[in-house]
């Protein structure tokens, strides 16, 4: 039997290969999502030197450090204001925030809602694994009701956020949810986000077999992935209020899709000093209001 050994992977130039192997556990969903983002970097047609990736703290916060682009691993919760400033100072750059649900929506929640309200030109990619993975599986703002965590040993009794609903309500111009099993759709969503100006939000549901799967008796990584595979329903037109995730009921679907794609004026601190914007800028919003 001959052994085939690849010296190089086609994606090597996208990563800091000298930093591998990564820190993530076997079965973790962050790696595939990172790869989808890396593929989108190439397919975007925007030179790699013009992409910037910013993160906060946590397992997902380690993503920028593995990417071979300008990358900033900041403090817990503060990736968005940091990235906002990079995008404002260098508007020609394509700036993404790649971080986790606890980082972006617990400690950093205030910054997310204000960045969405302002419509800052950022692509926010949020890995949602329903728990704080790096610190060992604590309950978070996205942990489903009833799920166990080291700090919710009797089951989570807090209502979780529905992240796409929150993003849409606070003003994001593109809102999607995929899983780390839906890599083609995820990559396409990231590409759409890169083409849009303004704040885009993509939630990526990702297995965390160690932090979330084990205490909730979901089984190993394969079984957690099967859970997504069996429960997921793609429905781009699903009502935003019906996107909550409840793992206790087997017939409660996990709805995926590209839910929101609208136009709003992009955050520009000098907007009021520029010549009056053209009327078309506000037309899609006005039309929508008329229809409604």
């Amino acid at each position: 039997m001959t052994t085939l050994m690849a010296e190089r992977h086609p994606s090597d130039p996208l990563f800091r290969a000298d930093r591998l192997p990564h820190i993530w556990c076997p079965g973790c969903g962050i790696g595939p999502a990172m790869h989808a983002y890396a593929q989108a970097l190439v397919e975007s047609g925007i030179p790699l030197d013009r992409h910037v990736c910013v993160s906060g703290i946590g397992c997902s916060g380690r993503v920028p450090g593995y990417l071979n682009i300008d990358s900033y691993h900041t403090t817990h919760g503060r990736a968005i204001p940091f990235a906002m400033a990079v995008a404002l100072v260098r508007p020609q750059l394509e700036v993404a925030v790649f971080s986790g649900d606890g980082d972006l929506f617990a400690i950093g929640g205030n910054h997310f809602i204000h960045a969405a309200r302002r419509n800052v030109d950022l692509n926010v990619i949020c890995i949602n694994n329903f728990n704080y993975g790096m610190t060992g599986g604590q309950v978070g703002p996205t942990t489903p009701m009833g799920a166990r965590a080291t700090t919710a040993p009797y089951g989570n009794y807090e209502q979780p956020f529905s992240l796409p609903y929150l993003a849409a309500a606070t003003g994001a111009v593109f809102v999607a949810r995929w899983t780390s099993l839906h890599l083609r759709q995820l990559k396409q969503a990231i590409l759409r986000a890169m083409k849009k100006r303004g704040l885009t939000f993509i939630e990526v549901l990702a297995p965390c077999p160690v932090g979330f799967g084990r205490p909730n008796e979901i089984g190993d990584a394969m079984e957690e992935m099967m859970l997504y595979r069996e429960r997921c329903v793609v429905d781009h037109g699903a009502p935003l209020a019906a996107l909550d995730i409840d793992l206790r009921q087997r017939d409660h679907p996990i709805v995926l899709g590209n839910f929101v794609d609208i136009e709003r004026p992009v955050f520009d601190p000098l907007a009021m000093r520029r010549p009056a914007p053209e009327v078309e800028d506000h037309a899609p919003l006005a039309r929508k209001e008329q229809e409604g």
Binding site: P81, F82, A85, L93, N110, L270, R273
Partner: peptide, 27 residues
């Protein structure tokens, strides 16, 4: 704005400090 600079009133001081670090790494 008179000199083409950027002023942003942030949502809090955590964001303010993070933003000036971000602006500085961008030059």
């Amino acid at each position: 704005p008179e000199v083409g600079g950027i002023f942003v009133q942030m949502e809090d001081e955590l964001a303010s400090m993070a933003a000036i670090v971000g602006a500085s790494v961008a030059g």
